[in-house]
Every structure is written in C-alpha cells, then in structure tokens.
Design a protein around this nucleic acid. Structure first.
Lengths: 233, 233
DNA sequence: AGCGCTATCATTAGCCG
DNA sequence: GCGGCTAATGATAGCGC
C-alpha cells in the first residue's frame, strides 16, 4: 500500500514475496500486541512460513498455547459458526457454478454457431461469388480466433505462481483466468455476507476486498459485433 | 493514530476501549487474511474479548485448530516438515502442469485441424461431387461431436461423491473431469511420497484416494481413427 | 540478501447525528 | 451503541544502495 496499490493475490516474485512477508508479519505482530495492550484482551497469532523455520507467534508460544487451549474447549458454540461457514461456502459454490455453467454454455454456443457457419458455407458455396467466399473465409477465421481466445480464458495460466508456497490444503494448480475470476466472485460474495456480523466468520476478513473487480466475463458476448452478421440467414 | 496519538496502554474509558477494540480487531483480521493471501502462508489469529461471546478467529475455527495443532506438537521438527511439504508440492504442481499443458495443446490442435478441414472444404468445394460433399459434412459433424466431448471432459462436473465429504479447507466447487483427473494424479504422487509416512501433512488426508485411477486422458488421441482420413491431402 | 527512504495507500481517534 | 466522516498517524511498495 505504498507507491502502488497491490492486488490481493499471491505475489509471484519470490524476493518481493519474502520482503513483503517480513514487513507484514512484523507489523501484524505489532498490531496484535497493540490490541492486546490497548483493550486488555487475550490474543494470539500464529504464522507458518517457508521463510522461518519456526512459526511466528504472538504472544509468547506459551501464552499462545494457553489461549488456544481455551479456544479448543468450546465444541458446542463452535458449531454455529461452522454451520454459518458451510452456508457461506455453499453460496459461493453455487454462484461459481452459475458462472462456469454460463461460460460453458457460451463456449459451446460459439462452437456450434461456428460449425453451423462452416457447414452452411460448405453446402451453399456453389452460389457464392469470390467476394462472398473471401468474406466467409475471413469470418470463420475471426471466429476461430475468438474461440481460441476464450480457450485461453479457460485454460491459460493467469500470471501467477512459480509454485512454492500456496496455502496448504488448497491444491496447487496453475490458476486460469476463469479461476481468478471465480476467486474475485467469491470475495464479493463473502463481502455481501458481511453485514450479518458476529455470526459470520468472514465478516471482518474480507472487507478490504471491496474495491476488487470481477473481470468482465461476458464482455465478449455482450458485444453485438462479436458474432458479426449472420451469413446465411 | 489519528486525531491524536494514543499512548500504548490500557484504555481506561470503557466506551472508547470497546470502540477501539471493534475497529482494531476488524482490521487485524483483515491483515491476517492479506498476509496469508499475499504470501501464501498459513496463519491464524484468535482474540478473546469481553465484547464478543465468541472469540474472533481467523481463518475458520477448523482451520485454526489445524494450524494450532501443528504448532503445539512440534517446536523443532517443524522445519523438516515444511521442507518436505514444499518439495512434494512442487512435484505435484509440476506434474499437474504437464498434464494440463498437454491437454490444452491437444484441444487446440483438434480445433485447428477441424477448422482447417472446414476451410479446405469451403475453398475446394467446387471440385467435389455429391458423395464427397456428404462425406465431408459427416466428417465435420463427427469431429464437432468429438470436440464437444472433449469440452465436457474439461468442464462438465464429474459424477461426484455426495457433496459433503470434501476435505475441510478445499473450496467447495464442482469438479470437472480434468480436475478429478488432476486430483488423482496428485494422490498418486502423494502416495509415492507417502512411504515416509508421518512426516508429510498430506500422507494421511489423501490416503483414501489410492484406489482411484487416473482416467486415460489421451485415449482419444491414441486412436488413429479419431481423426479419420485426411480429406484434402 | 537486507536497510533506509519516501510517496502513497490504509488505518483509525475523535466527533457528530 | 452505531455508522459515517475526516484529519492525522501508521503501514508499506518500490527503489537505490
């Protein structure tokens, strides 16, 4: 948050990531300490990283274990939270599914249309002059390019990981543009869920993401010129 | 840290203390989330307060318990684990990348070839008789179907186990065939790594997957009849 | 790699309705 | 007590050494 605003996503550059980690973990611990002091509350933070052999901990490891012990001894009230969490997750999943479904549908429609155009071209060619033939060829070519572009959106790794340190349980895979878009979507939903405060685990965590934007998934489709005029109406 | 700089000490005024707590705990959790996201590290924070009936926690309670458990057990062996984990993760990532790359390449080749056939058909149609025209049409249609099938492989949700049993921290999303395949691949690799059992975080979690098979990703391509004879040699 | 610098961005103390 | 506002302090990304 300085010379430039950084996107809330994994930092690709190794040295930059390490530097950021060092700086941020330090000030995070300071924040924990301040909170604890100013408000007289018990708090602890634990950060595992590939950069430190030992996890960063505040307050002292012993203190942490004590705080944690307290935390673990509340199985019943935790349930509520878990339920909420699951609910939110389901909402996220549903929204994602919708996007993927739509995207899929659009892709298939693109292909089908292109094929139709090809077939129509093949079958109706006898009646075309050179100009029309040339136009047809170019049109098909353009649409092929467009489809390839869409394929990229699905499968091309977005500018991301060299591959070392992703959060443990999340499968380490190259993020595609689609995945990046889905992640943004997720953040937005979690943000929406925020208003119901104490019951939501995420009520706080994701507030910061509110100025992130969901990449325009359908820009392509909303552009009427994308498909061009029908060739064989 | 605003209109006036406050001393780092317990705030005596009750309402002020509560207000400060609310604001600060919120941004603290945000910071934890940012650190975790930006640097790809595991982190958790727990804050007990008289203001909330439940402790504020990040990330989810379950996640926290997991992170904490890790912390409590091993003060010094932690490093070994991290190294091993990173190594395994890199291996998995690499293998997955290979598969995705190949799959992508194949897809694109299919499409390109089909387009070529279409274009060739369009341009060479004048010299074809009815029989050849019909064959061409059917060939294109077949290949379209094949491509659609491939699309399914990429994007269609695989028949999945009753949606509940997913490992905790894995975002609940519809798995595509590709994703299922990749997961199997990951399991196989993790299985290979397993022989040194309790040192890997994954050694247990994924054991259940060992009888899954990696679907024959390239069956389609190994079948020479898949492309059919070239139409315009 | 790590440290210091500083322009920018982010947090927040105090106030108001 | 809460949410919004703004001035002021705090955090930090990018750079140069």
């Amino acid at each position: 948050m300085a010379r430039k605003k950084v996107k809330l996503q994994w930092i690709m550059n190794d040295t930059a990531r390490r530097t950021t980690y060092k700086k941020r973990v330090k000030s995070l611990m300071k924040k924990v300490m301040e909170l604890s002091t100013l408000c007289g509350v018990e708090a602890c933070a634990i950060v595992y990283s590939p950069y430190d052999p030992q996890p960063e901990v505040w307050a002292s490891p012993m203190e942490a274990v004590r705080v944690i012990g307290e935390f673990k001894c509340r199985p019943d009230q935790t349930k509520k939270r878990l339920d909420q969490e699951i609910y939110t997750r389901e909402r996220v999943a549903k929204a994602k599914e919708q996007v993927v479904k739509q995207q899929k549908k659009n892709m298939r429609m693109e292909m089908q249309n292109l094929m139709d155009q090809c077939l129509a071209g093949v079958q109706g060619l006898q009646h075309l002059n050179i100009k029309e033939l040339s136009d047809l060829t170019w049109s098909i070519d353009d649409r092929l390019k467009a489809i390839n572009h869409q394929m990229e959106f699905f499968h091309h790794p977005a500018p991301q990981p060299g591959a070392t340190a992703a959060p443990v349980a999340v499968p380490v895979a190259q993020n595609t543009h689609l995945e990046v878009a889905l992640e943004s979507l997720e953040n937005q939903i979690l943000l929406d869920t925020a208003p119901m405060p104490r019951d939501s685990l995420f009520s706080v965590a994701y507030r910061g993401g509110q100025d992130m934007m969901l990449p325009g998934l359908y820009d392509h489709y909303e552009d009427p010129s994308f498909w061009g005029p029908p060739f064989f109406p």
